[in-house]
Simulated scan of single mutants.
Amino acid sequence: MTTRADDLIDRRRLRRKLTFWRVATLAIAALAIVGISTWMAGETIPGVATPHIAKVKIEGTITEDEDLLERLDKIRQSASVKGVILSIDSPGGTTAGGEAIFDAVRKLAAEKPVVAQVGTLAASAGYMIASGADHIVARKSSIVGSIGVLVQFPDLTGMMDKLGVKLEEIKSSPLKAEPSPFNPTTEPERAMMRSMILDSYDWFVGIVAERRAMSKAEATALADGSVFTGRQALARKLIDEVGGEDQAIAWLGTKGVDAKLEVVEWKPKDTGSFFLPTSLAKALGRALGIGDFSAELFREMGADRLFLDGMLSLWQAEKAALGN
């Protein structure tokens, strides 16, 4: 009888364990389904269904970031977003990338109040994007400005001579694929590049003049590549107010946005780095003692700036290319 009672107890224990694991499996499966559905819908933002102020961080080197452009468009379409804070900390990047994001910000601002809040730096294409907002707030010691455009290319002819390397080429016209690092730059090539740069520069200055309510002459006077502190930028009408996120929220309040609403950051998709998911990459980096072994580390080293092509709106581009 004792053996039979023990068998019954064992069966009950086994039944309880099976029940627990069945419930756990179902719960995990349900969470996975919800997670996949959320990811496929692109709504990875906590609290996105309730009224809130959306915050978007625009950091590092500016490029034509498809994920960022998509996020800004989703924010524009979201009925839950009542106002937007662009948190900008960037030395600039490609002129075309700044233009694309500027256009997206203006499209967003046509439907919702948008304020730019500058952290350490909003220079060149970073300032171009900030100027797309309806109000700009910066710290007293923030760096703002560097309005301008440049093109940089190396001259490798001296190194080629030392190595005994000679380039042979056949092309359809003298300016095809020029300027080239493999031969000295000619005056017609420099004139071609100068014409392109001045045209984009004129467009950039026009944006500043229009968005900051100043004359073209006033904007041109500020567009000599100079950078300014937040206090200096305020005196020059490049920003509207000195402060941080609290001041940005207060300004949204003047536009009918409830200042008590939660500020929710709309983050980029978790794409990871190389073949590693971001979470695994971060864990590996911490284990090796080198920080996040991910695209963030790549950007922090300044290596992303080595591969910029085309016209740049970038502050300290030469040092940036060296990762300094």
Rank of each mutant, 00 (worst) to 15 (best):
F204Q: 11
A24I: 04
F293M: 13
V34T: 08
A281F: 05
S141M: 12
V56Q: 06
V208I: 15
K267E: 15
F298P: 02
D89C: 03
A317M: 07
D73P: 08
L26A: 10
D199Y: 13
L234Y: 09
D89K: 01
I101G: 05
A283V: 15
V242C: 01
G35W: 07
M1G: 09
V34Q: 07
R4Q: 11
M301K: 08
G93E: 08
N324T: 04
A41D: 10
L167P: 01
P179L: 04
V114S: 05
I143G: 11
W39D: 11
T25S: 09
L284F: 09
G92E: 00
D89M: 01
L308Y: 02
A125K: 05
W266N: 02
D202Y: 14
I28E: 00
L167S: 05
G230E: 11
L69T: 13
T120K: 15
A303R: 15
P184F: 07
L26W: 04
L26M: 06
R190F: 08
R231E: 15
D240W: 06
I170T: 12
M301S: 08
A54E: 00
G244S: 09
L108Q: 02
I88L: 11
S146P: 00
E241L: 04
A281D: 07
K74W: 05
L8C: 03
I249P: 11
K171Q: 11
T50N: 11
G145W: 07
G97A: 08
R194A: 13
E210F: 05
I45S: 04
D73E: 15
V257Y: 02
V151M: 13
R12V: 06
A191P: 01
L26H: 01
L26P: 02
A122F: 08
E66R: 15
T50F: 10
F274R: 03
T50D: 14
K140S: 14
F298M: 13
E64N: 12
E296I: 10
I170F: 01
D10C: 05
I207L: 14
R76Y: 01
L238M: 14
E169K: 11
L297N: 07
G310P: 03
V137Y: 00
W21D: 05
V84F: 03
L108I: 06
E300S: 10
D67C: 07
G225K: 12
E241Y: 06
A54F: 00
I85S: 00
E43A: 15
L18Y: 13
E318P: 10
S215I: 03
A287C: 03
L288K: 14
V137L: 00
E296W: 07
A320P: 06
K74P: 00
S180P: 12
F204Y: 14
L297F: 10
D65I: 09
V81W: 02
M196R: 13
H52W: 12
I36G: 06
T94D: 02
S313G: 09
I33H: 01
K82N: 01
N324K: 04
V118R: 05
R11V: 12
M301F: 07
D67T: 07
G243K: 07
E187K: 14
P113V: 03
S87F: 05
V264C: 00
D202L: 13
N183W: 10
R12W: 11
D240I: 04
M214A: 04
H135A: 04
W203R: 14
